[in-house]
Design a protein around this nucleic acid. Structure first.
Lengths: 208, 208
DNA sequence: ACCTGAACACCGTTCAAGT
DNA sequence: ACCTGAACACCGTTCAAGT
């Protein structure tokens, strides 16, 4: 009966009813997995945290997998930015390349559950959400572009940059997963291993 | 009332009641995750498949996590054997080393769900089951030993073999995970990428 | 010892009903 | 349009009871 409120402070309170419940659900899911792991994420719990019905979520996501896909997509955006920033700030050369590798592993170690949702097979990368694929490809492309640029300057050898990128992606991904799973010995942090790896990647390990 | 049966054929039928239900549960769990993925594994389903009560399992495993840990342990045994066999059959040199890398990735691609249970964070490697740790360490040690042997023959450069092993483990682990998750482009199989990787590992990727 | 059925406290998801 | 409560079909796990 009252005329529509114009003051944003007032609208902010029940803003979930006006279109941003979707983002609120994603944010809450991210916070929940950060604190309680992926197993600790329940749709009912997220709803309760946001003081919303258990089923309100289904207005914005088809199912739990769709929410996880959105969480992964959100993660890839941050990830993409972190990699690009490291490469750029490091001077787009050898140092930038090493900084990018470190940034990769640091993101994973700092956000283990989020990283796991992005890469742990909770969402099938092969199909489904086109936005997820776009964001994941975007992050990967930072690496590919950096390789092409380095090849152009003779910093690294020629060869298919896509394949080279997959090789390097696999290395940092592997280090990240081993670190997250606690499979690295105590005296060997994921970051230390990454620094050593960036050297090995460049120089190889062959004998004299 | 009948005298105890001596013929093994007769006893084999209800042998679950005599001590090997534990192994039967593991085998059934392995088969279930192979066919329906880790998400498809339910304790109730495994019980039903073995025509046993839903709760019979708790006589042999503390909970679902303990069953998964046993599945992982079982996997590490097979894995260990496959790596050792490849290294040995390949002549314990460069060819054997490459064969071992291929064997690693092939195991993962051929047994994606089993591999995921071993490495995907379903069981926390850091603690808990000592048998799991033993088997996992055993598989890893095959790689460490191969590096030490190659260093001794000047095939690869010196340096801490443990760290070198972690570096290489991360690479094949990363390739395996990317392959399992369907994150490799169609024209780039996990095995092809592994062959290329084994070359890059040795020679590096630096420019001229 | 080993196994069982009933029961408990959870889930994700559906659906008719409200505003 | 968006949200809700009740209901359904599942889970893992516990427990008193059987043999």
């Amino acid at each position: 009966m009252a005329s529509p409120a114009r003051r944003p402070e007032r609208k902010r309170r029940d803003t979930y009813h006006h279109g941003n419940l979707r983002q609120a659900l994603i944010d809450q899911a991210v916070q929940t997995i950060r604190q309680h792991g992926v197993d600790g994420l329940t749709l009912r719990g997220v709803g309760a945290d946001l003081r919303v019905s258990r089923t309100a979520l289904y207005r914005h996501f088809a199912d739990k997998g769709a929410l996880l896909a959105a969480v992964a997509t959100d993660g890839f955006r941050t990830f993409h930015a972190a990699l690009a920033e490291a490469w750029q700030a490091g001077g787009r050369g050898r140092a930038g390349f090493e900084a990018m590798g470190l940034a990769y592993v640091r993101f994973a170690v700092a956000n283990p559950s989020h990283y796991r949702v992005m890469f742990g097979g909770f969402v099938d990368h092969a199909g489904a959400d086109p936005e997820l694929v776009t964001e994941a490809d975007g992050a990967f492309q930072v690496l590919v572009d950096s390789l092409i640029e380095q090849q152009g300057r003779g910093l690294i050898a020629g060869g298919d940059p896509q394949q080279l990128a997959l090789y390097i992606w696999a290395i940092v991904h592997g280090i990240a997963m081993l670190g997250i799973d606690g499979q690295l010995p105590p005296q060997q942090s994921a970051e230390d291993l990454t620094v050593a790896a960036m050297h090995h990647i460049r120089e190889g390990i062959r004998g004299t």
